[in-house]
Amino acid sequence: MHLRIYRFNPDTDTQPRMQDYDITPEASDKKLLDVLVRLKSVDDSLSFRRSCREGICGSDAMNINGRNGLACLQSLDELKQPVVLRPLPGFPVIRDLIVDMTLFFAHYHSIKPYLINPESPPERERLQTPEQRERLNGLYECILCACCSAFCPSFWWNPDKFIGPAGLLQAYRFIADSRDTATAERLDYLDDVYRLYRCRTIMNCTEVCPKGLSPSHAIEQIRLALLKQSS
């Protein structure tokens, strides 16, 4: 198996370079991450993040053959060779495939990713009808891997001001939650040329989400909720 991997060591390099690797996967290697882990045992200078190896932690997002995805969910038999791996586009590179997620998480925190409800909680829990719970499907599953935001052209141009598809999907997760009472404030915060309205419905986000979610649909719902609020 032939791979070309983006290499950059901040201590020694001024420019990134592409390094070729040839490796024979073992029969037990099913996903791209398995091969990367094997590569690292040969060349321990190769750096990438991973943890759960099953699409839950969101740490091994990278650009695989020109598209963002999770190495741990990428089947080897679906990959064209050479397998070209680069860091998430538009994010500051720390080393090799590791990028700086500071800004990404700052956007996430800016949308107040927790339930806001000043009423005193009931004895046991805040109940939801099955229909109310149903509205959170397709939203709560987001693992904040940043595949979407790092594939969004609008996020590339304004990464400091546009919240990006991941943050907006999370924002809608709380707007849609029947137990949250801060919908109006949340919408007011989002009504901004940059925060929400940089999105041009390109749908690159939905194209690459490894969890099959649709941030563009969440954004569409936020815009419609804003429309309803102001009319």
């Binding site: 052209p153 041009r200 419905t201």
Partner: peptide, 20 residues
């Protein structure tokens, strides 16, 4: 300025991005 990978020729754009 931080190093970024953003070479648009090396990114595979979906059909929606091309229409856009």
């Amino acid at each position: 300025t931080p190093l970024k990978f953003l070479n648009l020729w090396q990114i595979r754009f979906p059909i929606g991005a091309i229409a856009s």
